[in-house]
Nucleic acid binder design. Structure first.
Length: 271
DNA sequence: AAAAGCCCCTGGATGC
DNA sequence: TGCATCCAGGGGCTTT
């Protein structure tokens, strides 16, 4: 589910509200895929400083240590003073004096890691190898194009891999390639500099637009106040197999790449 | 180093 | 109504 826009929308929804809060309690449900160092004795009493995002990870800086959250495929966070009793898919509550942050994740592909000195290496491992932030200054065209030149894999899968640029998941990879007019199956190494520039701009504008629209809500995603996003209504290709392209009316095609669905317009994305 | 597969888990949609 | 099958927004790990 959550790609960069959904994680960022989540972050924006509670970062200012939780800053300065003191942790009162921690409640755990079923284990998530990565659940390390979560000892209530270590967390209770800690103060929340800031909430940052790195790729699809949320980083909650505490006055001692760092709490790292990942929403996996089906996760979402709520933040409120009063939340109902934890349900079967609520797996982590961070209770503070300013409200409770709750992670709901039916598929449990998510992660909660408390990286104090003891578990710092675990966080480093999860965050290591991540590519540049697409919305930041570091998303440099020369470096992007040079990196693409070194990759033979289809561009869609290179975007998804996240070691070159982070945050682009399955929805936005298809959308960005449509916006750039690039066929998803094209080897990354065959993308010219001008087309790499177009792709870079497309990734940035699509992700930024999705944040503005509150992210995409297909099933599970909602922001910390429980509201869905609207970007899926603007999708040009994702989930539109067989439907007319919004630009040229050619039927949108669907294919499988690395066990993930890809959508594209055969006319607007000729090569 | 890069690329391709497999797998973690639950639930919803679809088909028989 | 029941049951089987397929699919889903991610990504780490293992094998080529």
């Amino acid at each position: 589910m959550p790609e960069l826009p959904e994680v960022e929308v989540t972050r924006l929804g509670f970062a200012d509200r939780i800053a300065g809060a003191q942790v009162r309690a921690v409640h755990l449900g079923k284990p998530l895929r990565w659940e390390l160092g979560i000892d209530p004795d270590d967390l209770v009493g800690r103060r929340v400083l800031t909430v940052r995002r790195r790729g699809k990870y949320l980083l909650i800086d505490l006055d001692a240590g760092l709490l790292l959250l990942h929403l996996g495929m089906s996760g979402s966070l709520r933040f409120a003073h009063a939340l109902p009793e934890a349900g079967k898919h609520d797996h982590f509550d961070l209770v503070t004096d300013r409200g409770t942050l709750r992670l709901n994740d039916p598929r449990r592909f998510g992660a909660v890691v408390y990286a104090d000195d003891e578990h710092a290496s675990a966080a480093t491992k999860l965050l290591g190898g991540l590519g540049v932030e697409p919305l930041g200054e570091a998303f440099d065209l020369d470096e992007f194009h040079a990196a693409l030149q070194r990759r033979q894999a289809p561009i869609k899968q290179v975007l998804l891999a996240g070691d070159l640029v982070v945050g682009v998941g399955n929805i936005y990879a298809s959308e960005a390639l449509f916006a750039a007019g690039i066929r998803p199956t094209l080897s990354a190494s065959r993308i010219s500099r001008p087309r790499a520039a177009r792709l870079r701009d497309a990734v940035r504008s699509i992700l930024a637009r999705a944040v503005e629209r509150g992210g995409s809500t297909l099933r599970d995603f909602s922001n910390v106040d429980g509201q869905g996003g609207y970007f899926q209504l603007e999708a040009m290709v994702y989930g539109r197999a067989g439907q007319a392209c919004r630009v040229c009316a050619t039927p949108i095609r669907q294919l499988r790449q690395g066990q993930r669905s890809t959508f594209y317009c055969p006319h607007c994305q000729k090569y």
